[in-house]
């Protein structure tokens, strides 16, 4: 474990998480959430949890993004709140 790399990744991940809930466009929020998931996968593999990192990369960054984009295509793209 390299703590400088972990620190930078965690700062970037927190920024992605805050951006994903503050941005108005839902498609932008989905893409930012996918980036968050990718950073999370890198952090998991940094912590030697390769199995969890694999699941995070396949499900979090892959399937969930596609499902969210399909849901946005069926509903609306603008956030109402």
């Amino acid at each position: 474990m390299i703590w400088e790399l972990d620190f930078a990744l965690l700062i970037f991940m927190i920024f992605c998480a805050i951006a994903a809930i503050t941005v108005r466009d839902l498609l932008h929020a989905t893409i930012i959430l996918s980036a968050y998931s990718l950073i999370m996968a890198v952090i998991w593999s940094e912590m030697n949890a390769v199995d969890v990192a694999f699941t995070e990369a396949a499900v979090g960054a892959g399937i969930t993004t596609v499902l969210f984009i399909a849901a946005i295509a069926r509903t609306g793209r603008r956030s109402s709140d």
Binding site: V50, D51, A53, F54, T55, A58, V59, G62, I63, V66
Partner: peptide, 18 residues
């Protein structure tokens, strides 16, 4: 033996269909 398993492999296989 290593990282991976049935669930992850099935998800990657479904990603090819996507």
């Amino acid at each position: 033996l290593g990282a991976g398993g049935g669930f992850q492999g099935g998800v990657v296989f479904a990603a090819s269909f996507i």
